[in-house]
Write a protein that binds this DNA or RNA. Structure first.
Lengths: 105, 105
DNA sequence: ACTACATTTGAACAATCGTTCAATTGTTGG
DNA sequence: CCAACAATTGAACGATTGTTCAAATGTAGT
């Protein structure tokens, strides 16, 4: 479990995954889809960003299999596709909430 | 727990943390320090990169409090400073090992 | 004080990235 | 077929990033 020995390919793959979560806008999109199904346009409205920007980010997240898409009529709905990323976000967000005491003294 | 509502600051902070894990070289450094204490020079040797490059990455990881440093004599030893990042790496690496069947058919 | 070793720093470069805008594709209803 | 809505695409831009090289700092032993 510990003392991990990753191949260069595995390391790059892992780094790529983190890279997709490293932009605030894109991270917000992922979090918005974390526990709910969301239409592309609704994500854009919710975050106050353009449909175009949303779509660019969604394409990256989709092709990395972090999100998956499902078209129903005119709308395209997005949900989490990666259990691993889902639980990583839960861990980090939980940590943010429990350790929200930035200035103790 | 779920349905997380993060402030823009929290989202950016989280994105920054992921950003520090998003470069293969830097991620390798973090993983090298994940369960062991490592001197800066040993990390460089282990990864086959220059001391300078190692130090640049270490500075970023240190100032984000992902790693902490401890100088003893000429050497500076680095260890994990963030439990949260530690467990996230464990989750992701575990996932990499259990799902290592890239081309089934 | 001088030398050797370990690490850090700063400037500079090419490469990558996020965003915007205009145009396009896909889908449904009249 | 045409209009209206939803989403995607591609080109272009400014900004950020990882890396290298040369120089500097810190530490220990003689």
């Amino acid at each position: 479990m510990s003392q991990a020995k990753l191949t260069p390919d595995q390391t790059s793959e892992l780094a790529d995954t983190f890279g997709l979560l490293s932009d605030p806008t894109r991270l917000s999109i992922v979090i918005a889809c974390k526990d709910d199904e969301r239409a592309a346009g609704d994500i854009a409205d919710h975050l106050g960003i353009s449909p175009s920007l949303t779509s660019h980010h969604l394409r990256l997240l989709r092709s990395a299999r972090i999100l998956k898409s499902d078209r129903r009529g005119k709308q395209v709905f997005y949900t989490m596709a990666d259990d691993c990323v889902h639980s990583v976000l839960d861990v980090m967000i939980e940590h943010l909430f429990t350790h929200s005491h930035p200035d103790p003294v």
